[in-house]
Design a protein around this nucleic acid. Structure first.
Lengths: 336, 336
DNA sequence: ATGACTTATTAAAATATTTTAAAAAGTAGA
DNA sequence: TCTACTTTTTAAAATATTTTAATAAGTCAT
């Protein structure tokens, strides 16, 4: 199962695609593998069209290095997320450039709609390398364990179902987890940070939690279920925000306090770098108020940075990242 | 810096010492390195006395395998923790067997006392491989960043100070982090779990947090500072437990509720497998009451398992594990 | 323009690792 | 006991990787 050559191949791919490393000697340093070995691998990849020579790298003193780039049309990735009545999808290349996007309306069950959608891409001229799926449900290793929005998916091993149907590698992720992961991958600095992403959602609030860059899943799939937090003598977090008017707007004082307490709760436990609210729920103007509310409970230097995230973009970014990583890990030598 | 041979050596050591793997073919499978390569390494280790041939492994069908064990007198590890007025220490072998233990009373500053203590082991006949230190302070990569109990250590890079003084590898860890790590390493099943370890302490409560087996440190060293949790309209967690009588005893109703809310807070955020209270603070009888209090806030299947930990043993176990791991990672080939 | 310096690439030699095949050492059943 | 089977160990051959040295291609200062 563990093939060191394949691991090196994947490592090189990821460095080229995900971190813009483009010369052999840089790759050699980063992967801790010698120059000749990396070069041989790159030559192979060029031979079957996975990598393309791209000219010169900006020289810094000596002989300029040849620069290589990944062939972004080599494989594409299908990313999609499932909502109550629609499935949003994007066909992207390995750089997250959109080749095609659209919405499929759910007719019949969610499963049927999903099936016909992915079947359409089998005929497609573009070659797929992976499928990445987001759901508003609890997921355990590709299996849907709790799905209030879509009964046809409940308790289904969606990952294997899709893998059998398409023959492609598949990753399934919860919506909040995908969003927080996507947010964290926007810039390199936040990649290994701890971040909380809050969405108020139609079925009650939920949070995606990242600790040192890793998604927290919890013992029983209950992580991030912040509704239940006992923040008041006789009221939970949910009690104080359940009447919030739908859509992005300025919060009421009571809601501000609840948000401040929520942020304080995370600060005094995980002490994360950043706390993200969604643009579907809040406006920028709310943040200083929440920060001030939080300062009532603990010293301000321990309060995470507050942000407004772009929900759909973050969600799609997370799915894209998960799908692309999976794709880069699973392409075999020679592109088989 | 990255030497694949050394990595294999460390991997083999850890498997033998930490996971009781004793035959070459098992090692070969686990490390994904071929039989001849592992065998060569083992032969080397036998040559300079790090590993000893130990007879036959119980055969299961074919030719019985030779069995090897680690020479537990090869190197020892000094573990110690610093309190307000004393330093407790244990000299252990790689199996955490105690060779010597004792208490040093603090005379002068903590730093002076620590210095004379470690100097004593330089003369010792037993060869040291690492030093592991626990402190009731916030630690950032070996540096003491906040230390209410010992002014002489404040802002000191204790790790480098000790490394310079002794020439040995050193690890410094916060007390709660060490304890939760030690608890998690007691049995293999909990190694990759998420666990919270609460201590009420003299300087207010604090928690050590493990997520999927990794210690959570936080953005500003504030992780686990549960004192500040806003759990009531006008009171924090600390407000409700600050008057608790010292020592292990049966909690009052008000304290029970605070503990229940604390557990619920973690359940609705990290959703950990276990929540550990210390035998210094609580008695076994308190646990069902806390569990019932927690059930007021969320469904019982999401509540972590509640335990009473043995504080000093867990603390020392964590230090031992950290020290032994460090020792196994840093011994050079040939035992130099 | 020339020479000193820097970095990248190529080629060859030296190491290290894996694979394959054969031998050794046991068990279990006829 | 003999044979078939299993697993470990050893030995030899085949691969893969790194190291070393040589060469190529640039910059920069004079």
């Amino acid at each position: 199962m563990k093939d060191p050559q394949h691991e090196l191949l994947v490592d090189i791919r990821k460095q080229i695609v995900l971190h813009d490393v483009s010369t052999v000697s840089e790759l050699s340093k980063i992967t801790h593998v010698s120059f000749p070995t990396v070069k041989k691998m790159i030559d192979d990849m060029i031979e079957y069209g996975e990598v393309i020579e791209h000219g010169q790298h900006a020289p810094k003193g000596g002989r300029p290095a040849k620069s290589y780039r990944y062939n972004s049309t080599f494989r594409h990735c299908l990313t999609l997320y499932i909502e109550a009545n629609e499935i949003h999808y994007r066909l992207i290349d390995c750089q997250n450039q959109i080749a095609e996007e659209g919405v499929s309306f759910v007719t019949g069950t969610h499963l049927e709609t999903l099936g016909t959608l992915v079947d359409a891409f089998d005929q497609h001229t573009i070659k797929l390398g992976a499928i990445s799926v987001g759901v508003a449900a609890a997921v355990d290793r590709g299996r849907i364990v709790f799905a209030p929005e879509y009964p046809s998916l409940a308790h289904l091993d969606l990952k294997n179902w899709l893998m059998d149907r398409t023959g492609l590698p598949v990753v399934i992720e919860n919506d909040m987890n995908a969003a927080v992961y996507g947010f964290s991958k926007r810039d390199e600095t936040s990649t290994h940070q701890s971040i909380v992403y809050l969405g108020l959602g139609k079925n009650g609030p939920g949070a995606g939690i990242l600790v040192d860059g890793h998604v927290v899943r919890g013992q029983s799939g209950f992580s991030g279920e912040v509704s239940f937090l006992p923040l008041y003598d006789h009221a939970s977090f949910y009690d104080r925000i359940k009447n919030k008017s739908y859509g992005p707007n300025v919060l009421k004082e009571e809601e501000i306090d609840a948000m401040g307490r929520l942020v304080a709760t995370f600060a005094a436990t995980l002490n994360p770098h950043a706390f993200i609210f969604s643009d579907v729920d809040l406006v920028l103007e709310d943040l200083p108020h929440i920060n001030r509310a939080c300062e009532r409970y603990l010293p301000s230097r321990h309060i995470p940075v507050l942000h407004i995230g772009e929900w759909e973009e973050d969600y799609f970014s997370g799915l894209a990242r998960l799908g692309i990583e999976l794709m880069l890990e699973t392409i075999q030598r020679g592109g088989v």
